[in-house]
């Protein structure tokens, strides 16, 4: 428990430092200008989005085997945080596209894959939010996550093949050392944020269960 406030402070400092590196230290990219700085948030967010979905997969597998509410709460929290970072990717992606290619949406393989995966896990979230609260819905959602995460591979291959004519983005190999200097600290900062959010959401789901249990007990005491 004591770790949380410490990490919150470290996380805040890391995010501030990442901003400094991104906006002040990193060099201005020649063709895209300032918009290229999106990259330092866009790319780490994409990695963390995948991380969230993969952790959601792990939690769901564990839940299917041991049926412990903890595993389910962890899976839900991980998917939620993953979706959060996915949203960052899907919002900054079009900004990048606009600056780089003059259009809001380009069928760029990685962004398209991300969008499809986002849809799969958005369905998970909608199911959890509106599908009811029973044990059956948790099981359904777990199966969805277990099917959804390995689908990353298939979606990736399919989308890449689909847009086979499109060259890989320049940025992935054209990184200067200054750019790396901003990218990795930014990743580290967002990683800390990721785990802080994960912890908070997980705790919130656990607390919600505790409150429900207490309510139930109170109702029973009142009833008898």
């Amino acid at each position: 428990m004591k770790l949380f406030p410490v990490m919150a402070v470290v996380g805040a400092a890391a995010v501030a430092a990442a901003h400094y590196l991104t906006f002040i230290v990193a060099p201005m990219e020649r063709t895209m200008g300032a918009a290229q700085r999106i990259f330092y948030f866009h790319v780490p967010s994409a990695w963390l989005c995948y991380l969230g979905f993969i952790l959601g997969f792990v939690g769901s597998i564990v839940y299917l085997y041991n049926r412990k509410a903890k595993a389910d709460a962890f899976a839900l929290a991980a998917v939620e945080v993953g979706l959060c970072f996915g949203l960052i990717v899907l919002l900054t992606g079009p900004l990048w596209a606009r600056a780089a290619w003059g259009v809001w949406w380009k069928w760029e393989p990685r962004l398209t894959s991300m969008a499809l995966l986002f849809l799969i896990f958005a369905a998970y979230w909608v199911l959890r939010s509106f599908g009811g609260r029973g044990e059956g819905v948790r099981r359904f959602a777990a199966v969805l996550a277990v099917f959804g995460a390995p689908n990353i591979l298939f979606v990736h291959v399919a989308v890449k093949k689909w847009r086979g004519d499109h060259p890989d983005m320049v940025v992935s190999n054209g990184l200067t050392s200054d750019m790396r200097l901003a990218l990795y600290p930014s990743l580290l900062a967002l990683l800390i944020v990721f785990f802080l959010l994960l912890h908070l959401r997980y705790r919130a789901h656990r607390d919600a269960l505790t409150v429900q249990a207490i309510r139930r007990r109170l109702a029973r005491l009142r009833g008898i």
Partner: peptide, 9 residues
């Protein structure tokens, strides 16, 4: 997934 869906609203 259809088998699972009977549980949901």
């Amino acid at each position: 997934l259809a088998v699972m869906a009977v549980n949901a609203r």
